[in-house]
Design a protein around this nucleic acid. Structure first.
Lengths: 232, 232
DNA sequence: AGCGTATGACGAACATGTTCGTTCCGTATG
DNA sequence: CATACGGAACGAACATGTTCGTCATACGCT
């Protein structure tokens, strides 16, 4: 029943002194299994340790903290991003890659939120980064701009996943409904512009907003060069 | 020594039956005091409850959870944002307002991280939103674009604060150094574009990157209209 | 072969967020 | 005036992250 990829003797603790050593990858694998079966909420140190028939403290030899572990898990998940997908112009292929990235993050909004603060820095994330740089280069964007542009693009895609990612449909969607309610009731004499724009603030499906934001970013990057030292 | 703005009898618990009732604002005030004196790390339910001479469970009548409380605290802090600052063109004033916003968030990166997932939706946040909409309108940007644009701008500013905000200089700066190390050691045959761009990815001070990103966004918003139904 | 040391596994401990059932108080109601 | 009711405060409990000190094991050195 319990998933045990790297430990062999679940029977007794002190029975088998030659217990296979823990591994960072083994811990991540166990975390992925639990994530798939029980959701991120159950991916806790104690739960993983139990699956590996050990104590939570033992994991800290290979994992700095929960954030580190989750970052590792996220990078594994990023292997599902289709970096070579899309067709047509470089812009369309760039959009396809970022859409695929957002789609993966959509599945686990909590991980998306985490990746906003601590970048994964794993092989899959680096692969995505490299692909984006290649596409921007194909679009004729100078390296200096592309280097800062990918940061903007990834930050935007991640932010989109965080904002429009719904953890449990059962929950009442705190952040969205809270702000929506405030906007709906807003006093036009105090915040005239919010009242005027109104529902536009929250309008549009996640997809249309995503495409629009992407267009804004790419267009902006194309028109904002820092290499000629024009404006910095 | 302990800060007690809304509770009067710290002596004994059952001595004074007429203990003043707790208040949401009182809780937030206590949280702000602890934040100022001991940092966000100590702004815990139990710590606040102790300052108010009660139990942690009592706070949950007025506060949904820690995130809700922190959001409230953040909105209070946003009162320090200079929404009317800056001079010159609307772009420069817009940049000044967002810079002020980022500056406030810089002081408390943890709160910035939180505001990335759950929007504050308090009066100060709404004031900032309203001001940004006014500036975009002054720039001749259609309401439909401005409504989505503010989201982009605020998300960018918040993300900047999260990424370049250093919690404790004593800590070894996990996310930055981790990614930096990976980039420095990256294999040019596997990730050629990362290797080529190299240090450019992490170059520039936070300020120059912020200004560049802001230019990208504003320029992009100016050139990407969704109203004429041209491209959506 | 015998020994010492470093590495890692482990249990216990502490602080935290959150929930549950209970108790208490003020107030409306008869 | 007595009573019932509802909201709010409370204590205890549970799960979690993280750290500390201890101890066993395996490997290298003499």
């Amino acid at each position: 029943m319990t998933f045990e990829p790297h430990r062999a003797e679940p029977i007794s603790r002190r029975e088998r002194p030659a217990k296979p050593a823990l591994t960072r990858s083994g811990i991540v694998d166990a975390a992925l299994a639990i994530l798939a079966q029980e959701g991120l909420g159950k991916v806790t140190m104690r739960r993983i340790a139990a699956a590996l028939d050990t104590g939570a403290a033992s994991l800290y030899v290979y994992v700095r903290n929960t954030e580190d572990l989750h970052a590792q898990v996220l990078d594994s998940l990023l292997g599902a991003v289709n970096v070579t997908g899309g067709s047509g112009s470089w812009r369309e292929r760039l959009a396809a890659v970022l859409a695929s990235y957002t789609e993966v993050l959509f599945t686990h909004p909590d991980l998306a939120r985490m990746s906003m603060s601590t970048h994964p820095s794993g092989p899959n994330y680096l692969g995505l980064l490299d692909r984006l740089l290649a596409l921007l280069r194909e679009g004729g964007i100078p390296d200096a701009d592309a280097a800062w542009g990918v940061d903007l693009l990834l930050s935007f895609a991640t932010g989109t996943a965080v904002e429009h990612g719904h953890e449990d449909p059962g929950k009442d969607g705190d952040d969205f409904s809270a702000l929506a309610e405030q906007i709906a009731v807003v006093d036009a004499s105090v915040f005239p512009h919010i009242a005027r724009v109104g529902g536009e603030l929250l309008s549009g499906t996640g997809d249309t907003r995503f495409r629009w934001g992407l267009d804004v970013l790419i267009t902006g990057i194309l028109h904002t060069n820092r290499t000629p030292s024009d404006g910095i």
